[in-house]
């Protein structure tokens, strides 16, 4: 990490879903995400990763604790400068790929020529140029997810939250999309928080990986990778890559066993 100013800060953050069952899904979490950092979260399924994203984005209130983004507390709404890509397909089925991507910009009342320029760039960047006029129903799940990523990117967020965005992709495409994400991260200087269930993906992309316990999710390990900023998927052949992945797995193994009931 070259810059160390905290971009997002979580202190004692927990989330208990209200209602009869009172599911304690998350925390307590203490975390500082540095400006420009690429931070990934791995953890067993159901451990509270998506809950963490919701709370950090201001989509759900924490049950306790505080969240600060760019020096201001996050409360009740998504702060300006935060972009979210959800785990589920969130493309708008009534709009073409191009109109989906332009959606946020149009709501801001931006000049049409500027919208077209940004949308063309984002659509090309995500490899959707040949499908700009298609509707989501005509696309594969992975392509729809790329539409959602493009829709978020055109808004040029300073903090990008991605919830298992490549879950629907095959391994090769996943590696290439990872490269694109790294390129984007380098070019924009944005801070990235990536939730993933793929340890190799986390190890390859991140400056730092947070390993979560089974529910209620807490960070049981924070692994610094030490990769140079200028990196890509070829890092998987680096000897250090194996060491990082191995450490993630040893931290996660017991938690994963708990998650499948063998703890």
């Amino acid at each position: 990490m070259t810059e160390t100013a905290a971009h997002a800060v979580l202190r004692g953050v927990t989330r208990v879903y209200p209602g009869a069952s009172q599911v304690h899904a998350l925390g307590p979490i203490d975390l500082d995400i540095a400006k420009g950092e690429f931070f990934s979260v791995v953890g067993p399924s159901g451990c509270g990763k998506s809950t963490l994203l919701d709370v950090l984005a201001g989509l759900n209130p924490p049950s306790a604790g505080t969240i600060v983004f760019e020096g201001k507390p996050v409360a009740g709404s998504v702060p300006d400068g935060v972009g979210v890509v959800f785990q589920e397909d969130a493309s708008f089925p009534w709009l073409t790929v191009r109109d989906n991507v332009a959606f946020g910009l149009r709501r801001l009342g931006m000049d049409a020529a500027e919208i077209a320029r940004r949308v063309d760039y984002a659509v090309g960047f995500m490899g959707l140029a040949d499908f700009a006029g298609a509707y989501p129903a005509q696309l594969s799940g992975g392509m729809r997810q790329r539409v959602c990523i493009a829709r978020t990117l055109v808004l040029q967020p300073r903090l990008i939250l991605l919830d298992e965005p490549f879950g629907a992709l095959d391994q090769q495409t996943r590696l290439l999309m990872g490269d694109e994400l790294l390129r984007l991260w380098r070019e924009t200087g944005a801070t990235v928080l990536l939730i993933t269930h793929a340890l190799d993906e986390a190890a390859m992309l991140s400056d730092r990986v947070g390993v979560m316990s089974s529910r209620p999710g807490r960070f049981i390990d924070l692994v610094e990778t030490g990769w140079p900023r200028d990196r890509d998927s070829r890092i998987v052949s680096d000897a250090a890559f194996g060491a990082v992945t191995a450490r993630l797995w040893s931290s996660l193994r017991t938690e994963s066993m708990k998650a499948i009931g063998r703890g």
């Binding site: 989509l59 709404s77 979210v84 959800f86 397909d89 969130a90 708008f92 959606f103 959602c148 808004l155």
Partner: peptide
């Protein structure tokens, strides 16, 4: 689908 409304909120 709730995610569509969540998207609306995330787009402010």
């Amino acid at each position: 689908r709730p995610v569509l409304l969540r998207t609306a909120r995330s787009l402010r």
